[in-house]
Design a protein around this nucleic acid. Structure first.
Lengths: 190, 190
DNA sequence: CGGGAAAGTTTGTGATCACATAAGCTCATG
DNA sequence: CATGAGCTTATGTGATCACAAACTTTCCCG
């Protein structure tokens, strides 16, 4: 999810087991679970690797993010008090720091933390779980993306999100979230 | 997914294995995968059972169905030719027959087939997979619902969906799908 | 007659193993 | 130098087992 692995990276059950000090059995269960969620892909012969997404699949997952996260943000809006907004701002500073440090994994991690912190207020666990499943599928691809583009400025749309939350502006919030979510992936596709 | 099991029904790995003529190992993998998708729930001690959803969770899953399936229908609309509409109408007759036969499982199965047939045209496999994950989570609950209410009339909104497809009426289609998807579950909540 | 402790049973977990297959490598050949 | 056949290695699969924890049943005592 955090882009620690590149797309197409191969894994083995014995390797995973050794890495975590267990046998193949728990490694297999973890792999099968992640494969069921789309976070890993299994070849026809059962080999395990991180997925290499096609352009179409990336666009579809971006559309899913927009669909789910706009709804989550909208549901969080009436419950978003000042303490939450403060936390979002502080997380956003961490995001900006990761940008200057060119730390792709740190950037993805803190960026997702920003979103999750907001969505937790929506009180919609099933919806949040679905959004996280999409994040999981996009993890390696996001790594490839943010490793490619050389950003220097902190995320613009995060400030719009915070502003819309402060103003209680639901249409503005929906637009800001949708833009933030689709912006990055749009660059990858071109 | 098809409501063959009641909510809260317990399962054992050995029992599943025996039922399918395999050992515990493949049974475990299947159970863990289904649990990851929310189709089964694992107790803290690892016991397996179908989920018993709370009212809040049912409402949330209904909202998710609406969100995802409205989008899928909308994407399918421009590709929906006469052959598809014919197929939908024939599936819809099967649905009506299941209603008169009071066959809950058959009803759920053919009803979902109706929706899946339409959504396949959307060419959005990740989105369809998410919708099916929601169906999977709702399976046992739907069984309990359709076992409770004694319907006699065939699904009204399916005809609206077909009519909107014929007319190329996107707003009408969105409304019809949203109504169809939320209608049944609304009854359960009250 | 009720309740709880103890014995017995069921159940999930993780490890290990044999096996079949896929992947990688070596080496001879054109 | 490229190429492919044959061999070696690596890898996933499913079965089985020992163990610990949880659940069920039994039985005894208040």
């Amino acid at each position: 999810m955090h882009g620690e692995m590149a797309p197409g990276q191969a894994l083995t059950l014995r390797g995973i087991g050794k890495e975590f000090g267990v046998s193949m059995t728990p490694a297999r269960e973890a792999v099968r679970r992640l494969a069921a969620e789309g976070a890993l892909s299994l070849s026809t012969s059962g080999r395990v690797s991180t997925p290499e997404l096609t352009r179409d699949r990336i666009e579809e997952l971006a559309a899913l993010r927009a669909l789910l996260e706009v709804e989550l943000a909208s549901r969080a809006l009436p419950r978003a008090h000042m303490a939450l907004i403060d936390r979002l701002q502080s997380i956003n500073m961490a995001v900006a720091e990761m940008v200057t440090k060119r730390d792709a994994v740190g950037y993805i991690r803190s960026n997702l933390e920003f979103h999750r912190t907001l969505y937790l207020r929506a009180q919609a666990p099933a919806m949040l779980a679905m959004a996280e499943t999409v994040w999981l599928q996009l993890g390696p691809t996001m790594r490839a993306l943010y490793g490619r583009l050389r950003r220097t400025e902190p995320p613009h749309y995060h400030r719009l999100i915070i502003a819309a939350l402060k103003a209680g502006d639901e249409p503005g919030l929906r637009l800001a979230v949708r833009s933030d979510v689709t912006q990055g992936l749009r660059l990858l596709v071109t």
